[in-house]
Design a protein around this nucleic acid. Structure first.
Lengths: 200, 200, 200, 200
DNA sequence: TATGAATGAGCCTTCATTCAT
DNA sequence: AATGAATGAAGGCTCATTCAT
């Protein structure tokens, strides 16, 4: 086992190299037009070696959002625990979402411009990852209503659509046009305006 | 000239047949994976005949949103003229957008799931068509502020992002999951909630 | 009949337009890569109209050398009649060949670079036209031997090969590289040197 | 390195197989009409494998004369070194040229009927290969003049044109019509007659 | 584990040719 | 006679994937 660990670590490292390279290439060319050869070159390995870790190009593409979204959710759980109100937590979630995209623009391009709107992706794990996003927000909206932080008459699904759609659209515009130029500065006011909508 | 008109009409008819067929196929398979052979079959003509009207597959794909968006904008101008307040007009625009998507789901899939988020589409005419959407909303938001219909402190770009993002997200969710099941019924409340945000 | 003649003339005119246009296009692009559309455009008529005169692209290509070579041969017969010696006539033939190419470079490109060396052309009429070239020279070589203008031991086929090959190679080099720059000036000495070979 | 050599050899072998197959197919059908599928079948490999070695059909076609001409030139240098007079060397060069064509008729068809007269081939390496032919002859003609083996008044370019054109034309006739039936037997007298032209 | 080598399946695009008007 | 419209057939090239080593 002591001899295998380094190997396993090495393997995990290579797998991550592939994911990183793939993220960049997919973000640049789109999944359909991206070439495995380009990913391999970017990762510094042989094309056929990619298949040691991922069975198909699509599987590779789908693995990317799954991993990072899981990370995002986990990190949110960590930081949310300390916050007193649902409003704070919801606010944090939206802010973290935007920050995450800003910090990982390649990943964000892949997620928001390729995976999310994809007609074709039916793979269960990806769908679940993405859908969790909505579920988390709906759950918080219900919780806030329940705790009296905002009106109980607020439709949680509709409101979640507004929150998610607004943040997503801000990010898409930034990813495609780099507007607003300073995404970090723009996120606060956007979240504030959205939160304002919840108030009585 | 009287002899040429039927020919021209026939030609325009065929071009429209191709556009309709292409919309369906692109919506189903995505632009990258769609096959010209399928489009031709759907249109009931020979593959090579498509090239009498469109130079490449991409050009064909791009023509679709351009035409319909122009229609949408024109129809909006018509109907907006009669409305007294900016709020009414803005409300109409958002409602019409949703209705247009509901009435033309294939076109909407192509626009919202393929064209809009595309990393790759740089073609000027398409970009302009899509960007006009934002410009129209921003212009109305400014007008409303100017006319005192809502607070002048409202940031028009941020607010436009919320409006567009919310509607787009509602449509995307409907296109992908058919939720809400009754899009028509859901549009009114959504627009109302968004308009409520503008109130002082 | 008086009403048909103009039509026939018009038709012949159009056919000639096509031949001229085709010569230019074939010379520029080669027969295989030349497009009927380009020829039609060059001739200022519809593509399908070409088929009123020539059944296929190849037939059109082959018609060109046939016509002009026939012209060349006829003109040679005319002018040769007045010459006293076979040597003079042979000399004239080679000179006229070079002059003809210089005066009709497109036709010459087609003949020397496409038709003559073509692996594929088996059509009898073309082959005969081209082969007549050799036959005329061989006949003159025999005649000269017979008349004692040069040694009877001279192999007529081999000598014909030298004469034709030399002239053809000079023309090909000129067509491809424009060397010698002044083909007209170079033709005399070339013919002289070749004729010198016949001398005892 | 010892492990790579067999692979490299295998690769070179396959590349040569492709060249051989391509030569045959190009000679039969002409470059423009030849199909990659036929070449692949002839070589016993997949079409796509050809693209491992040559980027396009044209590149493949051009590689063929380049390689063999280089061989011919190299072999000539070898054998010429032992010969005392320029006349001997020139004679050898012309003879070798004819022999080479006779021994490799497919290659010769490609070179003399497709590549050499091609209007379209501008690729530098091919042009240089072919042009070297003329340069070698001109150089020898100059050398012979210089060494007093023949008249210094002989124009080297014109004479080279005669030598090359005569040999080429003999070969073309043989390639197209198999005349003379015995090319080998005909080459000697042809070279002799040409050499006779150089004599004072 | 890692990869170089090989390929099969597929698809866009071109273009000579046909034919109804 | 002349042509615009339409197409069938064809082919070069790409690329994800496989597999022997």
């Amino acid at each position: 086992m002591s001899t295998q660990e380094p190997k396993q670590q090495r393997s995990r490292q290579r797998k991550n190299d592939v994911l990183t390279a793939a993220t960049r290439v997919f973000a640049r060319d789109g999944i359909a037009k991206a070439k495995m050869a380009d990913i391999a070159k970017e990762a510094g390995i042989a094309v056929s070696s990619i298949y040691d870790y991922f069975p198909t190009k699509e599987a590779l593409a789908y693995e990317i959002p799954i991993q990072r979204l899981a990370q995002l959710y986990a990190e949110f759980e960590d930081r949310a625990a300390a916050l007193p109100t649902t409003r704070d937590r919801l606010s944090l979630f939206l802010t973290m979402t935007a920050d995450h995209a800003r910090a990982n623009p390649d990943w964000a391009r892949l997620l928001y411009l390729e995976i999310w709107p994809s007609v074709l992706i039916q793979e269960a794990r990806v769908r679940r990852s993405v859908d969790d996003f909505g579920r988390i927000i709906v759950a918080m909206l219900r919780e806030g209503s329940h705790r009296g932080e905002w009106s109980a008459s607020l439709d949680p699904h509709r409101t979640a659509t507004i929150l998610m759609g607004s943040i997503a659209h801000m990010l898409i515009t930034w990813l495609l046009y780099r507007r607003p130029a300073d995404l970090e500065a723009a996120t606060g006011p956007m979240v504030e305006q959205l939160m304002g909508m919840l108030e009585v």
